[in-house]
Design a protein around this nucleic acid. Structure first.
Lengths: 204, 204
DNA sequence: CGGTAAAGTGAGTAGGGACTCAACTTGAGC
DNA sequence: GCTCAAGTTGAGTCCCTACTCACTTTACCG
């Protein structure tokens, strides 16, 4: 890959993350091209469809989250790593709505048009799959990280016996959405997480 | 108002709730007209813009939620009414994504186009306000109901002392979004709520 | 029963956005 | 430097969707 191509690809990804973060996944591809300082044709050369672009951003973000989680699992103390990680992901999601938005409203909104025109009511699963719902298994990896962190917390006795990795994943989904769409400031986010953490510690 | 007008208005609202529920707020107004069995002009006669339609649905749903909450606050036992209500709202939101969707992605997606074309990055608050973010104070009323229920739960000792109505509202927002976009089945919803409830009971 | 204003109709308008492509530019291997 | 494939460009195409309006139909009042 030529140097300018690699540079432009990165610029487009950065711009897309910003623009989608500001305006949601309905933002126009042209706006992204302008922010990236390239022509619209260049965006489409790198990402043939808008969904490909969304999927690429998601993959990058999820990869980063997974890596951070693996670091925490390896280095941190098992007693608190789970909670640190939970807080980190929610904070990250609150800032970059694409983490959550791409995965969710993204695929929905973007395919609503297609679904409507074809006259078919497509299942939500179908939609998120087509939109790169789990690009290269990144979501699966994230769940793996959560399982590891839960196991460590259980050893340390800082999480209730009945709590599974999936439970934590579900709460995490909820918290990310809440932070994003409830427009929580730092204080509210802290209070909401405190309640969830209390629940995770005391759940039977 | 003429009888046929009243009937059509109700049909359009029902159809809109269904269609938006299935396809998200990006669904076309025409699809709603077809489902309602009226011409597209009729939809626009009753609701001059798409956002008016979204706001009308939201208002109807929120009003129903508030009424149910008031009934529970008056009739139920203070010890459990808060938790019953919380579960009820989440269940309702999981079924009718408009409760959540209209309030949130709705206004965002729909105005993304406008914002993009005007070149202005509008604040999210602005957006939700224009889209009828709080039609006739219904959201405020819902918070009032939560405050009442929390007060009763505190009397009964079934909620931690430090928990405020706003905290519960924030958790509720998170849970509704989680149920909707995490695609929780009944079991997962139950488990997630159980953890949140444990947290609410034990929060200092 | 008219009469009439309210309501309904749906083809048409305007505008935006995803995506294309033929002409042009440039990085890098020789 | 020269070459040329890889990369960029942006005006243009096509389609979709919110919204309009001149005309038709209908509820309801006396």
């Amino acid at each position: 890959m030529r140097a300018d191509a690699r540079r432009n690809r990165a610029r487009i990804l950065d711009a897309a993350e910003e623009i989608f973060g500001e305006r949601g996944p309905g933002a126009s591809t042209e706006a992204i091209a302008i922010r990236a300082g390239v022509a619209i044709g260049t965006v489409f050369r790198h990402f043939p469809t808008k969904e490909d672009l969304l999927a690429a951003i998601m993959k990058r973000l999820l990869t980063e989250l997974v890596e951070h989680g693996e670091t925490l699992a390896a280095d941190g103390t098992g007693a608190t790593a789970l909670y640190e990680y939970f807080g980190y992901v929610v904070e990250r999601a609150a800032g970059a709505r694409t983490v959550v938005g791409a995965l969710r409203a993204g695929s929905e909104e973007l395919t609503a048009r297609t679904a409507a025109s074809s006259g078919v009511d497509q299942a939500a699963d179908d939609r998120s799959k087509r939109a790169g719902g789990d690009p290269l298994g990144a979501v699966g990896e994230l769940h793996g990280v959560l399982e590891t962190l839960v196991a460590k917390a259980r050893e340390a006795g800082t999480v209730g016996d009945g709590v599974t990795g999936r439970d934590v994943g579900d709460l995490l989904t909820a918290a990310c959405h809440g932070a994003l769409y409830g427009e929580w400031d730092e204080e509210r986010r802290g209070r909401a997480l405190a309640v969830m953490f209390a629940g995770l510690r005391s759940a039977r």
